[in-house]
Each structure stands twice: as C-alpha cells, then as structure tokens.
C-alpha cells in the first residue's frame, strides 16, 4: 500500500465516520481537531481503525491533538510503521 492509497483511505474514513459529513472536502493540512471537525476523543476510534485497516499500532501517547491534528500528520504516522 503506498502513501497515496493510505491518504485517501484515511480521508474517506475521517469524513465518513468521524466528521460524519461525507460532502466535506478535507484538505491535507487543515487542523481536524483544532478546527472543530472532530473531537480529540475520536482519536481512539481513529487508532482502532488504523490498526484494523493497516496493522499499525499507534501508542496511546501518540494520540494527542498536537501529533494527530492534520491528515498529513496522520498519514506520516501510519507510514512510519507500515512494512
């Protein structure tokens, strides 16, 4: 799975399941949590999804607004541990 595929999978998951507004056009670098699109609690759901979808375990201490605020950050974190 290349980065592009991961990015689009995450984008569609986030708009569908976390923002719950599939018409929303999520850009790569906008603050998803700080912009009020989803709350920090959704990060746990995000982590569970990433693990089941990509087999990547994101430690709890990485599930912070500072580290998981933009799609870019999320993609980078997933790619870091992708084999």
């Amino acid at each position: 799975m290349d980065e592009k595929e991961v990015r689009e999978k995450l984008r569609s998951y986030i708009t569908r399941e976390l923002i719950r507004d599939e018409s929303y056009r999520l850009t790569d670098d906008e603050g998803i949590v700080t912009g009020g699109l989803m709350d920090s609690f959704s990060l746990a759901e995000f982590a569970v999804y990433v693990e089941s979808e990509f087999g990547v375990y994101i430690p709890d201490s990485d599930l912070t607004v500072a580290r998981m605020n933009t799609l870019d950050q999320m993609v980078a974190r997933v790619m870091q541990d992708m084999k």
């Binding site: 920090s40 609690f41 990060l43 746990a44 759901e45 982590a47 569970v48 089941s52 709890d60 201490s61 599930l63 912070t64």
Partner: peptide, 18 residues
C-alpha cells in the same frame, strides 16, 4: 489529564471498540 488519556481513556476506548 494527558496521563489519564494515555493510560485510562485511550486503552479503555480501544478495548471497548475492539
């Protein structure tokens, strides 16, 4: 509160979600 998020909230949420 970060400590509680890392060691209570996230693990518990994940455990419940899975």
């Amino acid at each position: 509160s970060s400590w509680a998020r890392f060691y209570v909230f996230s693990p518990l949420s994940r455990a419940l979600l899975t």
